[in-house]
């Protein structure tokens, strides 16, 4: 799951060095947090969140394959 989000984020951003994905497991729930450079936020969110939504849809499939539920948050860069 983490690899999927990492792959997509790395492919879409301009600044690959700022891409960070954290994965936290609580039971069968998995929480992913994606951080990218401020200038790249638009690239991983998209118009009206279209990119973020598409990433979540694909993540759901990846999670279902492992019998899990996953949740993706895109965090504001500091």
């Amino acid at each position: 799951m983490k690899e999927l989000i990492e792959y997509i984020a790395l492919s879409l951003v301009d600044d690959a060095t700022q891409v960070q994905v954290k994965q936290e497991k609580i039971g069968n729930k998995v929480r992913l947090e994606l951080k990218v450079a401020r200038e790249d936020m638009g690239r991983v969110i998209g118009k009206s969140g279209k990119v973020a939504t598409a990433m979540r849809v694909l993540l759901r499939v990846a999670a279902a394959r492992e019998g899990k539920q996953a949740n993706l948050e895109i965090a504001e860069p500091r």
């Binding site: 492919s11 879409l12 939504t53 598409a54 849809v57 499939v61």
Partner: peptide
């Protein structure tokens, strides 16, 4: 069928993300 999804949701998401990555590349 898991790749198609409800109302083609998954296949469309896969297509959208692929378009973005290929275009960028």
């Amino acid at each position: 069928s898991i790749l198609i999804g409800r109302r083609s949701e998954t296949i469309n998401a896969l297509q959208y993300i692929t378009n973005l990555i290929v275009g960028k590349e």
